[in-house]
């Protein structure tokens, strides 16, 4: 039902729900906001944000250059009709013998679909914080689903094992998940300013 409501209403509802609970104490809230800094670091690492973009052309490399070959998001996030991501990106990184520049791979390699772009690139901390928990943008995921996504999704996990000479996400995965949990356990409070 939340899909039918404007985002602002959803946010108000979420805020209201949070308000109904006793809510985190200030210390827990502060710890959660601190934890979110780590979450942001991961979400805005090139391995993650290169595909969480507002436009239609994904980025690539640590520098975040426009993906070569005019690659586009396509109607479902799986690339253009006739040139799906899977044309080059397999279910796993290619063997090292294929060289450092062969396209990396992970299951369901894709961008978010155009209806829910889950844009993380270029967002301020408060904006990112709100986007992640906005079910209108995050694939209708609640906190549990989000936690599962960042803990287990194989495409997410690829960020820590990107192959070739690509820089992996700089925060250890376990630490990231722990921080994510700290943050969501406290109701995912957002930093101010």
């Amino acid at each position: 039902m939340s899909r039918l409501l404007p985002h602002s209403v959803v946010l108000l509802l979420l805020a209201g729900l949070a308000g109904c609970n006793s809510g985190p104490d200030p210390a827990q809230r502060q710890a959660a906001v601190d934890a979110f800094a780590t979450v942001q670091k991961v979400f805005q690492h090139p391995r993650c944000q290169n595909c969480h973009i507002p436009g239609d052309q994904p980025l690539q490399f640590d520098e975040g250059l426009p993906h070569a070959m005019g690659v586009v998001r396509g109607p479902a996030g799986h690339g253009a009709e006739g040139l799906p991501c899977s044309t080059c990106h397999g279910e796993a990184n290619p063997p090292a013998s294929y060289g450092p520049h062969a396209p990396p791979g992970a299951p369901h390699w894709a961008l978010p679909p155009p209806q829910q772009r889950m844009v993380t690139i270029g967002l301020s901390a408060p904006e990112l914080c709100r986007m992640i928990q906005d079910k209108g943008q995050n694939g209708s995921r609640d906190f549990a689903a989000l936690l599962k996504h960042v803990s287990e999704d194989k495409l997410v996990l690829w960020g820590w094992n990107p192959g070739g000479t690509r820089a992996p996400v700089s925060v250890p995965h376990a630490e990231f998940v722990a921080k994510f949990k700290t943050w969501t356990d406290a109701g995912a409070p957002c930093p101010t300013g």
Binding site: M69, G70, V71, V72, G74, A80, E81, G82, L83, T87, C88
Partner: peptide, 9 residues
Amino acid sequence: ADIDAALSG
């Protein structure tokens, strides 16, 4: 545009 997207590889 579809041709650009699919054949630029």
